[in-house]
Design a protein around this nucleic acid. Sequence first.
DNA 1: CGGCTTTGACCGGCGC
DNA 2: GCGCCGGTCAAAGCCG
Length: 181
Amino acid sequence: MEKYPILFPVQQASSSSTSFPRTPDMLGSTHIFGGLHGGNSCDLLGLKDFEGRGTSSQGDGAHHMKSLASSMENEMRPGKKKEKKVRRPRYAFQTRSQVDILDDGYRWRKYGQKAVKNNKFPRSYYRCTHQGCNVKKQVQRLSRDESIVVTTYEGMHSHPIEKPNDNFEDILNQMQIYSNF
DNA sequence: CGGCTTTGACCGGCGC
DNA sequence: GCGCCGGTCAAAGCCG
């Protein structure tokens, strides 16, 4: 079953069930990246934070991470007693690219890779290597159009971008991305 | 030698 | 209860 109707979310904007179990966290709930500069047909397509099947074990595996401080924002926060896991919004966008790894200025450490159903390409899971910053992202390629890469960000960075070297191209890329905020 | 990738195992939730 | 599934862990290996 396709938990992630990735294709063209413009139509399925109202999918994610009627109830929104997500908590009113910092950002709104649904964030959509509309097509930027819209030069091509779709250099960047909007997606939304898709709830997989309601519960995607966000903080469950966290009990393994003992080394990391428990003052994470995605963990259960002391203020909420009932809320065991807090799912924060995710921001996805599609990119037309030949390479999977888009250098967005942050340093990512890959921590997993899984095969995706109905997709011949695997999905890669990355995590920001910055201490205390548990921003995650996952990258996957569409099987129907292997020239499109879907990158899903989860969380927000609370630290400056550390860039090993600045390519003009990358900077332009970032500017394009951030100009949407 | 340190940071990262690889890769199979594992975990928790959900459907049947 | 069992099996599927998406997500994560962690040991081993790779590479600069």
